[in-house]
Design a protein around this nucleic acid. Structure first.
Length: 468
RNA sequence: GUCCCCAUCGUCUAGCCCGGUCCAGGACAUCGGCCUUUCACGCCGACGACAGGGGUUCGAAUCCCCUUGGGGACGCCA
């Protein structure tokens, strides 16, 4: 085969959800891995449900994930003349015919079939009538009545369907617009798509599409049906399961790299490896190791992977991702040395960017508010003495570094005969307002002498006021 | 109802194709411990699975059949 050409064909009837993102990723990585091409196609033949907002939302999500395309975006709504041409082609070759059965009649047939234990299908009433086009006619594909159609699926193996199970499905509606199974095939043929990776909810569509390929005399693409992503209750992922749009995860503070890693690894494996960068995925992703069974979406695992990616991203790279979260909390944060130092103290203790921004509050806050529980525990009268000593000694410090601060603490420990813990916790509370934080020496160095003294004095006054 | 797919720890999975090296390995979560100025990180350990039943075989997580369970599809939606 020449080069691999894959595609991602979302329909713009909503945001990009996790399942859709995953198929996009599978196609994109496979194209990149094989140095092939990736085509984006918007399936907007349903004029009623398709919206520009959805198109924009999909672009936004793809951009965030870092998925770019080599061709397109094509819009099916602009290709109706091509579909019309192919409809005529099928009619002329006898592979399609006009049908005037009413939808009421069809509905009734379906109901009856379901009730009596059969598969709902069109009964072929108009198949041999040789009807002409009329205002309420649809075009149906003349499907083979017997034999089998087999999907040679790269992930599931061969899947065999009895042709007797299929019916003469509609390829063009009475309003003249073409239907899904038909446009997909026409597009994939005319766009040269030779590798189709999609969710396995499409398996049942595939025999119909294969029939169309054959009727059109086109060669079949490689099919790969990947299992779906399920919610905790093991049903198809939906609004019920909380956030399902990709961009919602961006807003919660996930890194695109983590999202990609998680989504690809859910349903695909590379031995025992769990962590992958985008580059590694391009290098290692292939169709062979895609699993056959559906996977349950697990927030905890995503969270853990996000933490790993946060740790693995250099502070200078992470800052642009973190900045919006800092800003939305109203901090006066800006790109630069200070922010990078801040990140350096926080990146091993944050599972999301949102969490990290929250933890960074004391680095940007003007006045510190103390956690009540911590106040009760650490702001006792006896904490004043070491704090005062600290203030004095720090004030006279020629250089304000971790090393010199360590020395200051040691001498205060000696004078007061207190253990480090007894001194450190009140200081931590004074500096951050909390009982848990990064190491106090690194915090102090970043905050700077002036700010540290201010906060220490504030705390001393606070304690004094408390004890009166 | 009919058709299709799937089945290893709670979850994601390795192993399955080419049976023995698997009283089943890794990761997340959970629980212990170590490290430590706190919280994390890190490290060490524990818990925990071959859905059930029949075959085939000297031997089955691996091959075959059945049952059960789960998912998906059955539109003039995509």
């Amino acid at each position: 085969m020449s080069i691999v050409i894959t595609r991602f064909p979302p329909s713009p009837t909503g945001y990009l959800h996790l399942g859709g993102a995953r198929t996009a990723l599978f196609n994109w990585f496979y194209a990149r891995h094989t140095k092939g091409r990736f085509v984006l196609r918007i399936e907007d033949t349903d004029a009623v449900r398709s919206t520009q907002e959805s198109v924009d939302a999909i672009f936004e999500a793809l951009e965030w994930l870092g998925i770019d395309w080599d061709e397109g975006p094509y819009f099916q709504s602009q290709r109706f003349h091509i579909y019309e041409e192919y409809v005529q082609k099928l009619i002329h070759t006898g592979n399609a015919y006009y049908c005037t059965c009413s939808s009421e009649k069809l509905d009734a047939m379906r109901q009856l079939a379901m009730a009596t234990g059969g598969k709902p299908k069109y009964d072929g009433s108009c198949r041999e009538k040789g009807l002409k086009k009329s205002c309420d006619s649809v075009v149906r594909f003349r499907a083979p009545l017997s034999g089998t159609t087999v999907i040679r699926d790269v992930v599931k193996g061969n899947i065999v369907f009895q042709n007797s199970e299929q019916d003469d499905f509609i390829i063009q509606r009475s309003d003249g617009t073409p239907t899904y199974n038909f446009v997909v095939v026409v597009d994939d043929i005319t766009m040269g798509i030779n590798t189709i990776i999609r969710g396995d909810d499409h398996v049942n569509n595939t025999p119909r599409q294969i029939m169309l390929y054959k009727a059109l005399g086109a060669s079949l693409p490689v099919f790969g049906h990947v299992p779906m992503v399920l919610g905790k209750d093991k049903t198809r992922l939906s609004k019920r399961h909380g956030a399902t749009s990709v961009t919602a995860y961006r807003d919660m503070g996930f890194l695109p790299e983590a999202m990609i890693n998680y989504l690809i690894r859910l349903g695909w494996s590379y031995g025992d490896q769990e962590f992958f960068t985008r580059e590694e995925l391009i290098e290692k992703f292939s169709l062979e190791n895609i699993g056959k069974s559906a996977g349950v979406f697990d927030m905890d695992k995503l969270l853990s992977l996000n933490a790993d990616h946060i740790k693995a991203t250099p502070p200078s790279m992470l800052s642009s991702h973190l900045l919006p979260f800092l800003k939305s909390k109203g901090y006066c944060a800006e790109q630069g040395d200070y922010l990078e130092k801040v990140i350096h103290t926080l990146n091993a203790r944050s599972k999301t960017l949102e969490e990290m921004a929250e933890a960074a509050r004391f680095y940007y806050a003007d006045c510190i508010s103390y956690e009540p529980d911590a106040v009760a525990k650490f702001f006792k009268p006896e904490a004043v003495k070491p704090l005062k000593l600290l203030v004095d000694k720090i004030d006279g410090l020629p250089d304000f570094t971790i090393k010199s601060l360590e020395n200051v603490f040691s001498s205060v420990m000696e004078i007061t005969e207190l253990k480090l813990g007894k001194i450190a916790q009140p200081v931590r509370l004074a500096l951050t307002g909390k009982s848990a934080s990064p190491g106090i020496f690194e915090i102090m160095e970043i905050l700077g002498k002036e700010q540290v003294l201010t906060r220490l004095n504030q705390a001393i006054n606070f304690i004094l006021k408390l004890s009166h």
